[in-house]
Amino acid sequence: MPDLPELAASFTAALHDAGIAVGPDRTRSFARALTLLEPSTTRDLRHCALATLVSDPEQIERFDAVFGEVFGGPADPGAQRGQPGDPARSLPRTLPGRVPGAHRATADGRSREAGAEQREAPLPLAASPLDRLATRDFADLSADELARLSDVMRTLVLRTPTRPSRRRRTAHHGTRVDVRRTLAISRRTGGYPLRLGRFVPRTRPRDLIVLCDISGSMEPYARAMLQLLYCATRAAHAEVFTFATRLTRLTPALRRARPEDALARAGRAAPDWSGGTRIADCLAEFNERFGRRGMAHGAVVAIISDGWDTGTPADLATHMARLSRVAHRIVWVNPRTASPRYRPLVAGMAAALPYCDAVVSAHSFAALDEFTTALSAPRRRR
């Protein structure tokens, strides 16, 4: 795949010279589509370009002519419509130096038509800045780099499995008879229930509860995790807590905060930031104050911690067992598990492991896919 900025600039310049109005806004949309979709064939690239650069069907003929000139000949129209034809070609690893109507500066400063000479201009295979940041460990990112990821991180959707609701909806092939609706329908037929009204239960997403460790051992990941917690508060039926030496409910503070103020509000609300770790005591407080009141019943619980605990492992196992009896699913997020040398030898992690449905790392933006998948997966039998 060529360098995306060079690809977007060269191709849109060629379209502009061919008489297709392509402004900076369309060029920016095209570059963003390339970053998000990462097309690997000419067919995929053509679809990206058509969706972002062409606004009139009459421009398609000129568009295809320029596209074929830039990328080595027109793609087969049958293949573009999903019909049998020649397979779509892979994207060239270099862009042709000859672009219709494009002026390139020579070494002596004079401008000439690019069509006067055909040459191959090798371009570096450069990843976008977002791609480079996505695979780096959160602990290695600076505050500015985390801020660059925040906009993309807020597009994450934290989905949980659905559960039956007390509400219901009408369905022609429902499994249960709706007596009230059946009687209402029978009025049209003289009181005879010739047609049965049926319904099925509605479903709703399960509640999401996130408990995040903000102790000293988790401090390198705390900033990124708080950005993730800000995303969680945007999900329906989500509750966010932090813990170190005490449990703090952050949901009201994060929901009222702007993205840039979320970290500051969280720091003011949690006085035990970068302190010691008492996972067992904080879990006991959560079970006593919130779990027994029904918050954790049937919910998906995500615990973000490296497992370092100053308490007794037996106490942690007791409170984890209590939580597992009411929660639908427990997902433990431990950034340390990203290392291939990691072993669950920490006493706290070893005590909690039998009660976890999934253990993921979420140590980078790319690894968050594994976390979101674990949240939405069905419950496994422990």
Score class of each variant (00 low, 15 high):
R336V: 02
V66F: 09
P313Y: 05
G72M: 13
D76N: 11
L316K: 13
G23S: 01
Y355R: 10
S274H: 14
A139S: 15
H237W: 12
Y230R: 11
G23T: 00
T251A: 01
D76T: 02
D315H: 05
R180P: 08
P84Q: 11
T135I: 10
A257N: 13
A134T: 03
V210T: 10
A266Q: 09
D306M: 01
P335Y: 06
E285F: 00
V22W: 05
F71A: 02
S10Q: 03
C356D: 13
A79N: 06
M1Y: 04
V333Q: 15
L247K: 12
T251E: 04
A327G: 03
L196W: 03
E285S: 05
D140I: 01
L254S: 03
D64C: 13
S324I: 00
R249S: 01
A327Y: 07
L183I: 11
H328V: 00
L345H: 15
P77R: 07
A102D: 09
P100V: 12
R187F: 02
P129F: 07
H297E: 15
A9W: 01
G174I: 15
T162I: 05
R112S: 06
R204D: 15
A347H: 08
P129T: 04
A121C: 08
R206Q: 14
L375V: 04
G115Y: 00
T203N: 10
L149R: 04
S217A: 02
T12H: 07
P205T: 08
R43S: 07
P96Q: 06
R28L: 11
D144M: 03
A232E: 04
V22Y: 09
R258W: 13
R234M: 06
R43Q: 06
T52G: 04
G19M: 06
T373R: 14
T251I: 14
T41N: 13
R148Y: 07
P161F: 03
S274V: 04
L194P: 00
T182V: 00
E69S: 11
R154C: 01
R343T: 00
D140P: 07
T52V: 05
G190A: 07
V300R: 02
R265I: 06
S142D: 10
E288L: 11
L375T: 12
L146D: 03
F71H: 08
T27N: 07
L4G: 03
R249L: 00
A171I: 08
A314F: 00
L263M: 14
A302H: 02
L226Q: 12
R181F: 07
A127C: 08
R343L: 01
T189C: 10
E120I: 09
M320Y: 01
T175A: 14
P122W: 09
R43I: 09
L196E: 02
T242I: 09
V359H: 10
P220D: 12
D281E: 08
T203G: 02
A51T: 10
R202F: 08
G101E: 10
D151Q: 12
F67V: 05
V22Q: 08
R159L: 09
G23A: 01
Y192D: 07
P24I: 02
L345P: 05
A351C: 09
R180H: 06
